[in-house]
Every structure is written in structure tokens, then in C-alpha cells.
């Protein structure tokens, strides 16, 4: 009777006509120890279904809130702002056209003054040249005087010998 019922259920099971309750009945029958020998080959199927049902997901899932990524976004915004300011500030506060002209004028004046000084310097250097000429003549004179000295020594020796 029971066996008949099970065979009937299996037939309907293969045609996918069983309800969930009937399938539970089949599972219960095949997980017991007294399975009819000619139905033995169905056993692993239902044992497998029952076993697989117990497999669980054990891994932890990190449920982060999104704060971190937002912080990075703001840092990049700040970096862009800093770069923009770095470019804008020198342009906004740099010298105007008028200031540039004044600076050029002052530079030219300074150059003029400096070239005047350089001309004076060159004149002074020429005078120094004449001075060195004088010093050369003086040296010649000194050499002439030393020759006169030699002459005097020789002369005194002659007079001693006389």
C-alpha cells in the first residue's frame, strides 16, 4: 500500500506534477532506512537534496557606508581649488602696465648713470697710463745712477792702487 503510493508519487514526481507536500513525503521516505530494493537508485537523489539544503553561506559581508569615498571626492575638489588659486593669484595681483613702464624708466636711468661712471673710469685709467710711463722713466734713471755707482767703485780702486 505504502509502496504503491510511493511508486505513484514517483511517477508524478517525474512528470513534475507533485505538490511540495508530496515531495516532502518522498524525501521522508527515501531518507528512512527501509527503502524498497527496486527504488534504491532514487535514494541518493533525495539524500542529496536534503544535504544540499543545509549548506550555508559563512562569509562576512562588509556593509560599509559610503563616507570614505565622499572624503576622497572632497579632497580632489580641494586640490583643484588650490591649483586654480595658484594660477589666478599671480595674475590678479601682479604688476600693472603703468608699473611696468615706471620700472623700465628707472632701469634706463640707472643704465645711463652707470655708463657715465664707466666713461669717467676710462678717463682715469688713461691718466694712470701716463703715470706708469713716468715710473718707467724713473726706473731708467735709477739704472743710470747705479751704473755711475759702479764707475765710482772702479775709480776709487784705481786711485788706491796709485
Amino acid at each position: 500500500m505504502v509502496l504503491n503510493n510511493i511508486e505513484n508519487l514517483l511517477e508524478r514526481y517525474d512528470n513534475a506534477e507533485t505538490t511540495l507536500q508530496e515531495e516532502a513525503q518522498l524525501r521522508a521516505y527515501f531518507s528512512s532506512d527501509n527503502v524498497a530494493p527496486h527504488l534504491e537508485h532514487y535514494k541518493p537523489l533525495f539524500v542529496y537534496f536534503t544535504n544540499t539544503q543545509q549548506e550555508a553561506f559563512t562569509k562576512d559581508v562588509p556593509l560599509n557606508t559610503k563616507k570614505k569615498t565622499r572624503l576622497y571626492q572632497w579632497i580632489s575638489v580641494a586640490a583643484v581649488a588650490v591649483i586654480m588659486l595658484g594660477i589666478m593669484i599671480p595674475q590678479a595681483f601682479g604688476p600693472s602696465e603703468q608699473e611696468k613702464e615706471e620700472a623700465l624708466l628707472a632701469y634706463n636711468k640707472a643704465m645711463d648713470a652707470l655708463s657715465l661712471i664707466s666713461i669717467g673710469m676710462n678717463e682715469g685709467k688713461e691718466q694712470l697710463n701716463t703715470l706708469s710711463l713716468v715710473s718707467d722713466n724713473f726706473e731708467n734713471g735709477r739704472q743710470g745712477a747705479s751704473r755711475l755707482n759702479e764707475f765710482n767703485k772702479a775709480k776709487s780702486r784705481i786711485f788706491k792702487n796709485n
Binding site: 514526481y13 517525474d14 512528470n15 513534475a16 506534477e17 534504491e40 537508485h41 532514487y42 541518493p44 537523489l45
Partner: peptide, 22 residues
């Protein structure tokens, strides 16, 4: 469609299982 697919699957499983068993 689900019933048809399920029935096919169950029959395939049974057939292969019976072959292995016998």
C-alpha cells in the same frame, strides 16, 4: 514551461542515475 523543464530535468537525472545504479 517550468513544469515541462522540471520534468525533463528529473527524467534525465533519473535515467542517468538508473544507468549508474544498474
Amino acid at each position: 514551461a517550468i513544469r515541462v523543464a522540471l520534468s525533463r530535468a528529473r527524467k534525465t537525472i533519473r535515467e542517468k542515475l538508473t544507468n549508474t545504479h544498474s
